[in-house]
């Protein structure tokens, strides 16, 4: 392999990790408050919801799908859980179940559109995104849902239960609950994709669907499974977000689509895998969290954050797609 090929290969494998380490070092040197246990928990807490949603998007991408409805699903679940407790005075556990059911509903629509009606994934999930953003507005008449709101002239009967709020604000051995959920889910998705036959089948479909079909894999079923897992993860993200907010804000889920897709795509570039993977998605989510946290500490204006995230995404896409080609040719020529 040529020196240039080797360099490209190394950049493809370790480039993103080196950049992340460099950022951590820079922020720590410039702002000593950055490198503290407390701040680490803040960063983790800030990326937990994005990370949970992104892990689901990662699974949907393994089959060659793409779940653009994840953000709308988060928003819908925030509204559903808020309505369940505030307006219908249900228990926290019932609100969690209602939220997960809403996630399954979103996934069901995606499956109907992509697997049954054979609409291309990108446009199908785009349609689902619009549908559920709109639906969340309709059921709440475009209003935020919070304790004490008026329903038909009378104050709403319920409020967020303490148990439910613990999901967003509580801690387990000083670690915030959303961070624990994120970590457990990351391990679960990592095992699913990397170490089970179902994960192998999902990747096979993404790599060559016809080869997978002729190897006896039921392609439609696995594509549906990808969307179901994605919908459930987005619902879990929505539950955590709702618990943290303590109210059902209109449009609360909107930023989560771009950030979670970015985290999953950045993850392609980790260790040169060039495919969706749980470890990469975790790194991608952390990357976004570190950059935003560090920039805030450096007093960078908040309105520059989106641009920096965009630059991060574009850079890692070049790393995984542009450099990967050189690397792959280098490997086959050996």
């Amino acid at each position: 392999m040529s020196a240039a090929g080797r360099a490209g290969d190394a950049a493809n494998r370790y480039g993103l990790l080196v950049v992340l380490a460099g950022l951590l070092l820079t922020f720590s040197l410039v702002r000593p408050a950055f490198a503290t246990y407390g701040n680490a928990l803040i960063v983790l807490q800030s990326v937990a919801v994005v990370g949970v949603v992104a892990l689901g998007v990662t699974v949907s991408m393994t089959t060659g799908g793409f779940d653009l409805s994840a953000g709308a699903c988060v928003g819908t679940v925030v509204m559903v859980t808020a309505l369940a407790m505030v307006r219908y005075n249900l228990t926290g556990a019932s609100a969690v179940v209602a939220g997960l059911l809403a996630g399954l509903l979103v996934a069901g629509v995606n499956v109907l559109l992509t697997v049954v009606a054979r609409v291309p994934d990108l446009v199908a999930t785009l349609g689902t995104m619009f549908l559920f953003q709109g639906l969340a507005l309709i059921v709440t008449s475009g209003q935020s849902v919070a304790a004490g709101m008026t329903v038909d002239g009378a104050p709403a009967p319920g409020r967020y239960t303490e148990g439910f709020a613990w999901l967003g604000g509580g801690t387990i051995a000083s670690v915030p609950v959303p961070v624990v959920v994120f970590a457990l889910l990351a391990v679960a998705v990592h095992v699913l994709l990397g170490h089970t036959r179902w994960g192998r089948a999902l990747y096979a479909i993404g790599g060559n669907a016809e080869a997978a079909r002729l190897a006896g894999i039921r392609v439609a079923r696995y594509r549906a499974l990808g969307y179901v897992i994605s919908g459930l993860c987005a619902a879990l993200g929505g539950i955590l977000l709702s618990a943290r907010l303590g109210r059902g804000d209109v449009g609360a889920g909107d930023p989560y689509l771009l950030q979670s897709v970015a985290a999953a795509l950045i993850g392609f570039a980790v260790l040169g895998t060039n495919r969706p993977n749980a470890l990469g998605t975790v790194v991608g989510a952390l990357f976004i969290g570190v950059v935003i946290n560090g920039m805030t500490m450096l007093n960078a204006p908040y309105y520059a954050q989106t641009f920096v995230q965009g630059a991060l995404l574009v850079g890692s896409l070049v790393m995984s797609f542009g450099l990967a080609r050189g690397g792959r040719e280098g490997r086959t020529s050996r």
């Binding site: 192998r200 790599g207 190897a215």
Partner: peptide
């Protein structure tokens, strides 16, 4: 077009049709 999954190892190609037997 119909049997090779790009980038996969020889090992993964062998087990693909009978994943259950390798679990």
């Amino acid at each position: 077009a119909r049997a090779v999954v790009p980038g996969w190892s020889l090992r993964a190609h062998v087990s693909l049709p009978r994943l259950g037997a390798h679990t």
